[in-house]
Design a protein around this nucleic acid. Structure first.
Lengths: 348, 348
DNA sequence: ATGAAAGCGCTAACAA
DNA sequence: TTGTTAGCGCTTTCAT
């Protein structure tokens, strides 16, 4: 195979339209100072020749790379894919991120990095040097990682930190974790529950705390005690197996788990104890993943708008040059609660 | 933000090591004709400065882009993501493809294109012109699309056609669909079934035919008739709802569905008719996706080695320059059967 | 409003 | 075995 060259370049277009390279470039980049008639002529040639700019060349000459990198935790992601249990975080990111990127002529590229690794900086620097993305989507627990943030900031790369409110560079977005927890709690309160347990997620994630806050706020608001009702999990199914029994023993008639794994563990524990769900125990999951939907009974769950928040993040990054306003105020994409068959009034 | 330039370039490395740019380039590309001591010196500088080549620049100068594009059907993929029912084809591709790419310094970039569209050529050309990938992973039904194949071939881009045996340029890989179907059929025969129905997938996919062939072969081998036992589906849940009753009415005591959706439809039909599974009807699915695993009962299923075949495809593309041998013989990655609770001996 | 010239970081081709 | 030269396709100066 010969040295592969671009089929149609800006030169061809310029020649065809009878203008300079520069003018074509201006049209491509929608720059001002081009007469409408010139523009029309150039665009006609572009369409005729089927010209598409090479992002490699664009990047080379110092402009954008039209690439956005989505950083995810390697271990967790691979584990999810291998287990084939329907962990669809990446899918939802792709759904929201890829499509939004495509709308603006960008591409989304998924990158996995180890959170707990001393060479995280090297890994990330390498990815940045190789790809030179215009922006990076940071997901928990990377979103608040000071090393990563500093590195990206120093490199002058836009970033959207999903699930972090830690001040610093970059856009911050959340999926209203406190709201969601409160929403779930109120749903249970309305059903008549007074002993509502909550299994928290790993403290490494900021959002774990917000969820606890939301639950506690809703409980206080209703004048209910949270005494003995908080279990400290870490998002793993094992931690759910440990926390659920404790809460049940403490008299919980309903349990909200901070993710799907812990919710499934809770369901498992209930089954082992021959407690009917939702008869004896109501359960709410904090992820509306396939596992949760296909559980028996299907679980009432908080639906986190992962696709929506990712789409928003991409938009912020792409529009970063123009509107820096959003930098100060975090963006909140509101979650929703899907009531299924795992929640009901407590046995009186 | 100032014009973003590469932090460390080949120039810095060359200066640091006291050699020419070319020598550094040779070391990076592991070319021969470099004295070990030179190589060591250069590599030391590379490590010291944390240099990583810019793929944009590499691409510009006519070498590889270190990018591999995975082409998937837009509509089907998006639908899968939106439904959140655990369609994990893309996940499995990422699992096998991304990781293998990473091992070789490549990146995988997912691209969605409309199968049924008159502008498929334009869409694809645009993606190629923009990204200039070194290779493309074609999935059904794109794998046998003559327009796509011709386009890529003309552009001199390596391609791996997963799920196609149609002769032509590019590597061809399958997941042993005939074997898999035969495997499932034999499993049922061993259980004592003689009336084994098969719901075929859309004829637009080559593999649909192979699966039917495998089933028919296994039936013939055992001296069983396939008369009235073939239903023509199209991979949709609706088609499953239509075919399953027909097969049951024709006396089938077991049904093999060509994908998870149709298998779930069959389960649904059985339930509606108050047939117990596997008591009255055994069911085998041709996709071991989450839906199937979480079904009640969990379905016996063919596990298609999507991750493995994708990994293999990536390897072929990356190594394409050296070994063109694999071009003639299709690669078959063998599938396996996971027996769960939806298959049992027929009621006698 | 348009064009010409200079480079971005890297590699292929050639020369030494 | 090593270094030198000339681009790749595009965008940034800077002229006009």
């Amino acid at each position: 195979m010969a040295r592969r060259k671009q089929a149609v370049t800006i030169k061809h277009v310029a020649a065809d339209a009878g203008v300079s390279l520069q003018t074509v470039s201006r049209v491509i980049n929608k720059e001002p100072n081009v007469r409408p008639e010139m523009m029309a002529r150039v665009q006609e040639s572009i369409a005729k020749l089927g010209y598409v700019p090479s992002i490699a060349a664009q990047r080379m000459s110092g402009s954008r790379s039209y690439l956005i990198m989505a950083l995810n935790d390697r271990e967790r992601t691979i584990e999810g894919w291998k287990s084939r249990e329907g962990t669809d975080w990446v899918d939802q990111m792709l759904l929201g991120g890829m499509l939004t990127c495509a709308e603006h002529g960008y591409r989304l590229i998924v990158e996995l990095v180890d959170t707990h690794s001393d060479h995280i900086e090297r890994e990330l620097s390498a990815a940045i040097a190789a790809l030179q993305p215009d922006g990076v989507l940071l997901t928990p627990p990377h979103s608040a990682n000071p090393e990563i943030i500093a590195l990206l900031d120093a490199a002058g790369i836009e970033m959207a930190r999903i699930g972090s409110l830690t001040p610093g560079p970059g856009f911050r977005l959340t999926m209203g974790d406190d709201l969601a927890a409160a929403m779930a709690t109120r749903h249970l309160i309305e059903l008549g529950h007074t002993r509502i347990g909550f299994i928290a997620g790993s403290l490494e994630y900021e959002l774990s705390g917000w969820r606890v806050d939301g639950w506690r706020a809703a409980m206080n608001e209703a004048g209910l005690s949270t005494e003995g009702m908080l279990g400290q999990g870490d998002f793993s199914i094992e931690s759910g197996r440990i926390c659920a029994p404790q809460l049940i023993d403490a008299g919980a008639t309903a349990i909200i788990a901070s993710n799907d794994q812990m919710a499934m563990a809770t369901l498992e524990v209930a089954r082992a104890r021959r407690l009917s769900v939702p008869g004896d125990l109501s359960i709410v999951s904090f992820d509306d993943t396939p596992v949760v939907r296909f559980a028996h009974p299907p679980l009432t769950a908080i639906e986190q708008p992962i696709a929506a928040v990712t789409a928003r993040a991409v938009e912020l990054i792409i529009g970063a040059r123009s509107c820096r306003a959003a930098l100060d105020t975090p963006v909140v994409v509101t979650p929703s609660l899907t009531v299924r068959e795992s929640t009901a009034p407590p046995r009186s």
